[in-house]
Measured scan of single mutants.
Amino acid sequence: TSQSKEFDPLGPLPPGWEKRTDSNGRVYFVNHNTRITQWEDPRSQGQLNE
């Protein structure tokens, strides 16, 4: 049996976020709370300043 979700070392996405793949196979992220899409992983944002 194959799992639909692959193991992700960053852990789960924040509430309201979804990881998607476009027609070219590039991963992007959707924030359903604000209806915004972005290329950057929301889990890695904010760690750059620490």
Rank of each mutant, 00 (worst) to 15 (best):
T1P: 04
S2N: 15
S2M: 11
S2W: 02
Q3W: 02
S4D: 15
S4H: 14
S4P: 05
K5E: 01
K5L: 04
K5Q: 09
E6D: 03
E6K: 09
F7W: 12
F7S: 13
F7G: 10
D8K: 14
D8T: 10
D8Y: 07
P9N: 11
P9E: 11
P9F: 02
L10S: 15
L10D: 13
L10M: 11
L10Q: 10
G11W: 06
G11L: 07
G11M: 03
G11V: 08
P12V: 07
P12L: 07
L13S: 02
L13I: 05
L13V: 05
L13A: 02
L13P: 03
P14M: 05
P14A: 06
P14I: 01
P15H: 07
P15T: 13
G16T: 08
G16N: 14
G16L: 04
W17D: 01
W17P: 00
W17Q: 03
W17N: 03
W17E: 01
E18F: 06
K19D: 14
K19W: 05
K19Y: 03
R20M: 14
R20N: 12
R20W: 05
T21C: 06
T21I: 04
D22T: 14
D22H: 09
D22A: 14
D22L: 07
S23N: 12
S23F: 06
S23Y: 00
N24G: 13
N24I: 04
N24Q: 12
N24K: 15
N24Y: 07
G25N: 15
G25E: 09
G25L: 05
R26F: 12
R26H: 10
R26Q: 14
V27I: 11
V27T: 12
V27Y: 04
V27Q: 13
V27G: 11
V27M: 14
Y28L: 07
Y28R: 05
Y28Q: 10
Y28K: 05
F29E: 01
F29T: 03
V30C: 14
V30H: 07
V30W: 09
N31P: 01
N31V: 00
T34Q: 11
T34P: 07
T34Y: 03
T34F: 13
R35S: 12
I36P: 00
I36F: 08
I36K: 10
I36T: 02
I36Q: 07
Q38D: 00
Q38P: 00
Q38A: 04
W39M: 07
E40W: 06
E40T: 10
E40F: 03
E40I: 12
D41M: 02
D41Q: 07
R43E: 01
R43Y: 00
S44V: 11
S44Y: 06
S44P: 14
Q45V: 15
Q45I: 04
G46L: 10
G46C: 12
G46T: 07
Q47K: 09
Q47G: 13
Q47R: 13
L48F: 12
L48H: 04
L48G: 13
N49D: 11
N49S: 12
N49I: 03
E50H: 07
